[in-house]
């Protein structure tokens, strides 16, 4: 039995302990904003916050997160999340949209740690998040816009 917090609520899981957090979130908790894209931590579509840090949920066995705090796109809040989502909307960043939950989770974690990131810092934080529509140009601009909006 694994006990963890998901978006502020205590949850338990007593299925196969090998089950990746991604599939617990999606199949058992029915939170579908977190996506499957590769299963091997190569695309970042499954990014969640685990104890405040971005984590690829597709390679995180549920047995390893006992006692942890998990936040998904459905549960993010705070000034960084608000700034990022507002900036994303303002620039119409998403195209197909499938990777964007993961992009936003990575971007929010970045701004929580580095309030005004440089382009290099954005590259460092966002390189693990693939977007096959290649919305990268707007992702970068939106992160800068979000950072600027928090300064004011």
């Amino acid at each position: 039995m694994v006990t963890f917090t998901l978006n502020g609520k205590e949850r338990t899981f007593d299925g196969d302990p090998d089950t990746p957090l991604l599939w617990v979130i999606r199949d058992f908790e029915k939170l579908t904003g977190t996506k499957y894209g590769c299963g091997v931590a190569q695309c970042g579509a499954c990014t969640v916050h685990l104890d405040g840090m971005p984590r690829r949920s597709c390679i995180t066995p549920i047995a390893t997160i006992d006692g942890s705090d998990v936040v998904t796109i459905e549960g993010i809040s705070g000034k960084e999340a608000e700034a990022v989502q507002t900036a994303w909307t303002g620039l119409d960043v998403p195209q197909c949209g499938y990777c964007q939950s993961g992009q936003i989770m990575s971007a929010v974690a970045l701004l929580q740690m580095v309030p005004n990131p440089t382009d290099d810092e954005i590259d460092g934080a966002m390189t693990g998040n693939l977007c096959r529509c290649a919305t990268y140009h707007r992702i970068r601009a939106a992160i800068h816009n979000a950072a600027n909006s928090m300064e004011g």
């Binding site: 029915k30 977190t34 909307t89 119409d92």
Partner: peptide, 21 residues
């Protein structure tokens, strides 16, 4: 004009085939 599908694709509520459960 702002895109009609941006909001849902920014807050995780957009439903794709994989999300139908």
């Amino acid at each position: 004009l702002p895109k009609l599908d941006t909001r849902e694709k920014t807050n995780g509520t957009a439903i794709f085939t994989l999300d139908i459960m």
